[in-house]
Design a protein around this nucleic acid. Structure first.
Length: 766
DNA sequence: GAGCACTGC
C-alpha cells in the first residue's frame, strides 16, 4: 500500500507539474535529453512515470555513476511504488544484484550496463535505457553513448533518455541526432558570488590553503550565522587548514571581532575526504551545537558525491587534485590543477540548497573567465587499455574513429593498442587474439587479466595469482593512523608480512593470514589492516574464480608442501624466519614469472649506485647503452609503502637489479607503487615485442576494411549486425573527419591567399 | 627519502 503522505510528497516535487508533458515527449521521441537540477525529482519520478503510463514497457534500466546512488534511489522508488526492494524495483551493482524475475525497473551503475553491453550490445532485454547524471561524464557513460548510438539504429524502438543536471547539454542532443531537449525548471536558491578583487589563479597555487583559512575566518567574523564549506584539494592540507583555523579562532575576541557574536560564539571544524573512516565522517552531517558555526574543509568529494545539509557559505580555492594519464610515459599524474567554470558553478551551488547563500572565490573574475568551460571528461585523461579491449571484443575494428562524444587524443588510443599488442591481446594487424578474447572476460585491467590467464594455462599458480590480482584491485590495505607513535607501531606490524621478493608476495601473505585468522575483525585491527578493503578483495577473488571456472580456466595452486625442496633464496628466507607469515610456502618464481608476462612492460633497472630506477624499454628506445648517463630518462623511486623501500632492509639494494612495478604515480616525483624482483631471463624473449612495435599497424583500418563480414567463430546474427553497423558508422565518421580536415586545409589556403591579397593591396596603397 | 582527488566492473 502506498500511503497518502508518499503521494503528497511525490506531487510536491518540482517535476510533478510536467508529468503529462514528459510522458508525451517520451511517447513521441525515442531519443530524448532531459535537463533537471538536483532535487527536481527526475531520477526517482521519470522511471515511475514510464512504468505507470507505458504498458508495453517491460524493463527499464537506469544508470548511475555511483553504487550508493543506485541503492538509495532504488530503495526510495520501491517505497514510493509500494513494493519490496528487489521485486518490481531493484538495483544491480557489482557483487550485489537485488533484482528478480518480477523486476521491471532496475537502477544500476554505468559499469554494470557497460559490462552487459559487451555481452549483448543490442541490450535486448531493455525497452528503455536512461543514462542519468550524464553531465558527470564518467568513462563508462561516454563509452555507453557511443554504443547506444548504434543500438538506436538497430533497435529504433528502444527508448534512450539522457538525463543531466547542467544547462550545457546541447552537446548531448547534437550527438544523439539533434534530438529534443526537455527542460525541468529547478528549485534552488540564489547564491551571491564574490570574486577576489585581483588574485590570479596561477599565483594562488602556493597560498590558497592559507587564504582559504583567512576567508573562512573572515566569514565567521563578518557574516550572519550559517555553516561554511571550504573546497581544498587533499588530505594533508585539509588537516592543516583545520588546525590553523582552530588556532586563529582561539585568538578571537568575540565581543570585539565577531559581528554577530550574539548568535555565533564558537566554531566546530571538520575535515572530509574519501579515505577518512566513515565513523569520523558522521559528525559532518549533523547540526552543530547551538551558537556554534560549523566549518568544513573538504576535497572534491563534497562537489558531487556527498551533500552536506545546511551550507550557507562556500569558499572555493579554485583548485582540484586530478588524475591524468600521460600516454608518452605510460604514467598517471596526480596533480593540483585549476577547476573548470562548470565545477566552480557547481561548488557555489552547494551554498544554495536550502536557502539563499554566498560563495567566496579566492580568485578574480578574470581568472574565472579564463578557466576551461567544462572539466575535461575522464575519457580524455585516462588510459584506454581496458576500454579498447572491450570494444575490440565487441568486434569494433577501427577504434581510432569510433564515435565518441568527445573523442580522446588519438595518442591515447594508439598507446592502448600498442600495449594490447605487447600483452598479445591483439595481433600485428590489430585483431583480437584468442588470449585477448579470454582476457576480456575479466573485469580487470588487461595487465592483470593477462597474468590470470597465464597463471592458469602456463604457470600453474592460478590460486595464488587470483588472490594477488584481487589484492591489487582494491585500494589501500594498510591503515595509517594519525598519531605518530601508532604510525610507528603500524609500520612495525606491517613488516611481519614483508616478503623478500617484494610486494606481490607480501600481498599474498597478508591475504592468506587474513583467511587463516577467520577474517577476524580484531586480528585486522591489531595489525592496522583495513578489514573493509580485505573483504572487498575476497569478494573480487571469489568473482574472478567463478569467471575462471565458467570459462574452463583451471585453478591450480603452487603451494609447496615440503619447504626444503625449494632452492630459491634460502639465505634470505632464514633471515626472516622469525616472521611466521614471511616464510616461503609457495613457488615464488612461478608466481613472479607469471606476473612478468604483463609487467615486463613495466620493467625497471636500478641506477648503478643510487636507489633509483629507470624504465627499461624507454632507455632502450632512446638508444643509449649507458642507462645511468641518460639524462632524458625519468627517475623512478620506490614508494615508502613498498616492502622493498631501502630503509626496510628487506633486501640489499645491490641485490635489486631488476624490478617490475604495478604502476607509477607522478606527484612531485615518479613513485613506483607495488614492485617485485624480476629475473631478467624471464622477460628477455618478450622484450623483443617492443622491437616489433615499430613495424606493425594496429589501427585496424586499411587491411581489414574490405574483408567484409569477419568470421570470428560466433554465429550470432544480431551480434554481427551490431558489429557491421558500428563499423559502417565508424567508416562514415572517418570519411567525415577526413573531409573536415580537407576543408580546413582548403580554408587555411584560402585565408592565406586572402592575407596575401590584402598585403599586396596595402603595399600598393603605400 | 615519507603521503595519495574521486569513482567503478
Amino acid at each position: 500500500m502506498v500511503s497518502a503522505s508518499i503521494i503528497k510528497q511525490r506531487e510536491s516535487l518540482p517535476i510533478f507539474p510536467y508529468r503529462q508533458e514528459i510522458i508525451e515527449a517520451i511517447r513521441q521521441e525515442n531519443l530524448l535529453v532531459i535537463i533537471g537540477e538536483t532535487g527536481s525529482g527526475k531520477t526517482t519520478q521519470i522511471p515511475q512515470y514510464i512504468l505507470e503510463s507505458f504498458e508495453d514497457v517491460k524493463f527499464i534500466g537506469v544508470t548511475q555513476p555511483r553504487r550508493i546512488a543506485a541503492i538509495t534511489v532504488s530503495t526510495r522508488v520501491s517505497e514510493e511504488h509500494g513494493s519490496k526492494l528487489g521485486e518490481v524495483v531493484g538495483y544491480s551493482i557489482r557483487f550485489d544484484d537485488c533484482t528478480s524475475s518480477k523486476t521491471r525497473l532496475r537502477y544500476m551503475t554505468d559499469g554494470v550496463l557497460l559490462r552487459e553491453a559487451t555481452l549483448d550490445p543490442r541490450l535486448e532485454q531493455y525497452n528503455v535505457i536512461i543514462v542519468d547524471e550524464a553531465h558527470e561524464r564518467t568513462l563508462e557513460t561516454d563509452v555507453l553513448f557511443g554504443l547506444l548510438k548504434t543500438t538506436h539504429i538497430l533497435r529504433p524502438e528502444l527508448k534512450i533518455l539522457v538525463m543531466s543536471a547542467t544547462l550545457n547539454v546541447e552537446k548531448f542532443s547534437d550527438f544523439f541526432n539533434s534530438c529534443p531537449i526537455f527542460v525541468i525548471p529547478g528549485r534552488t536558491y540564489n547564491v551571491l558570488i564574490n570574486h577576489h578583487r585581483d588574485a590570479r589563479i596561477i599565483s594562488l597555487k602556493s597560498t590558497f590553503v592559507m587564504r582559504a583559512v583567512e576567508t573562512a575566518l573572515y566569514i565567521h567574523c563578518q557574516e550572519q550565522p550559517g555553516d561554511i564549506l571550504v573546497f581544498l584539494t587533499g588530505q594533508g592540507e585539509i588537516e592543516k587548514a583545520c588546525r590553523d583555523l582552530l588556532d586563529q579562532e582561539a585568538n578571537l575576541n568575540y565581543r570585539k571581532d565577531v559581528k554577530y557574536a550574539d548568535e555565533v560564539r564558537g566554531i566546530v571544524v571538520y575535515p572530509i575526504y574519501a579515505t577518512l573512516e566513515t565513523l569520523e565522517q558522521k559528525a559532518v552531517f549533523e547540526d552543530p551545537p547551538r551558537y556554534t558555526r560549523k566549518i568544513i574543509f573538504a576535497t572534491n568529494i563534497a562537489q558531487t558525491s556527498v551533500t552536506i545539509p545546511g551550507i550557507k557559505y562556500v569558499v572555493d580555492s579554485g583548485f582540484v587534485k586530478q588524475k591524468s594519464y600521460d600516454p608518452t610515459t605510460g604514467m598517471d599524474a596526480l596533480l593540483v590543477v585549476p577547476i573548470s567554470q562548470a565545477a566552480a558553478t557547481q561548488r557555489a551551488g552547494r551554498a544554495g540548497r536550502t536557502a539563499p547563500g554566498k560563495a567566496y572565490r579566492l580568485y578574480s573574475r578574470e581568472s574565472f573567465e579564463q578557466m576551461e568551460k567544462e572539466t575535461i571528461p575522464e575519457i580524455q585523461r585516462s588510459s584506454l587499455l581496458g576500454t579498447v579491449l572491450s570494444l575490440k571484443k565487441m568486434g569494433i575494428r577501427d577504434i581510432l574513429n569510433f564515435e565518441f562524444i568527445d573523442p580522446p587524443d588519438p595518442l591515447l588510443v594508439k598507446n592502448a593498442l600498442k600495449q594490447l599488442f605487447l600483452l598479445e591481446a591483439i595481433d600485428d594487424k590489430g585483431k583480437l587474439t584468442r588470449l585477448g578474447d579470454e582476457m576480456s572476460i575479466f573485469p580487470l585491467s588487461p595487465f592483470l587479466s593477462r597474468v590470470l590467464v597465464a597463471s592458469s594455462k602456463e604457470f600453474e599458480c592460478s590460486r595464488e595469482i587470483l588472490i594477488i590480482v584481487a589484492m591489487l584491485s582494491v585500494e589501500e590495505i594498510f591503515i595509517s593512523p594519525r598519531s605518530e607513535e601508532k604510525q610507528f607501531e603500524a609500520g612495525e606490524r606491517r613488516k611481519e608480512f614483508y616478503h623478500p621478493s617484494g610486494d606481490h608476495m607480501t600481498l599474498l601473505n597478508i591475504f592468506e593470514a587474513y583467511l587463516d585468522n577467520g577474517y577476524s575483525r580484531e586480528w585486522c585491527k591489531e595489525r592496522y589492516l583495513n578489514r573493509r578493503t580485505l573483504t572487498m578483495a575476497k569478494n573480487i577473488r571469489d568473482q574472478l574464480r567463478e569467471l575462471m571456472l565458467k570459462h574452463d580456466l583451471p585453478i591450480i595452486s603452487c603451494r609447496i608442501k615440503n619447504e626444503d625442496k625449494i632452492n630459491d633464496n634460502n639465505r634470505s628466507r632464514k633471515r626472516h624466519r622469525r616472521n611466521s607469515h614471511a616464510d616461503t610456502k609457495y613457488d615464488t618464481n612461478k608466481i613472479l614469472e607469471a606476473f612478468s608476462t604483463s609487467y615486463y612492460i613495466n620493467l625497471a633497472k636500478r641506477h648503478s649506485h643510487r636507489p633509483l630506477f629507470y624504465h627499461y624499454a624507454s632507455a632502450r628506445a632512446s638508444d643509449n647503452e649507458d642507462i645511468d648517463a641518460n639524462s632524458s630518462l625519468l627517475a623512478l623511486h620506490i614508494s615508502s609503502t613498498s616492502s622493498l623501500f631501502p630503509d626496510n632492509k628487506i633486501v640489499r639494494m645491490e641485490d635489486l637489479d631488476w624490478v617490475m612495478y604495478h604502476n607509477v604515480l607522478y606527484t612531485n616525483k615518479a613513485l613506483m607503487k607495488v614492485i617485485s624482483k624480476v629475473k631478467i631471463e624471464w622477460v628477455e624473449e618478450r622484450l623483443k615485442l617492443f622491437e616489433k612495435l615499430v613495424s606493425v599497424n594496429l589501427d585496424g583500418d586499411d587491411d581489414e576494411k574490405n574483408e567484409g563480414q569477419e568470421n570470428e567463430n560466433d554465429d550470432d546474427d544480431d551480434d554481427d549486425k551490431f558489429k557491421a553497423v558500428t563499423n559502417i558508422k565508424i567508416e562514415e565518421n572517418r570519411i567525415m573527419k577526413e573531409e573536415e580536415k580537407k576543408n580546413q586545409r582548403l580554408a587555411a589556403v584560402e585565408a592565406a591567399r586572402q592575407r596575401a591579397i590584402h598585403r599586396r593591396a596595402s603595399n600598393s596603397e603605400r
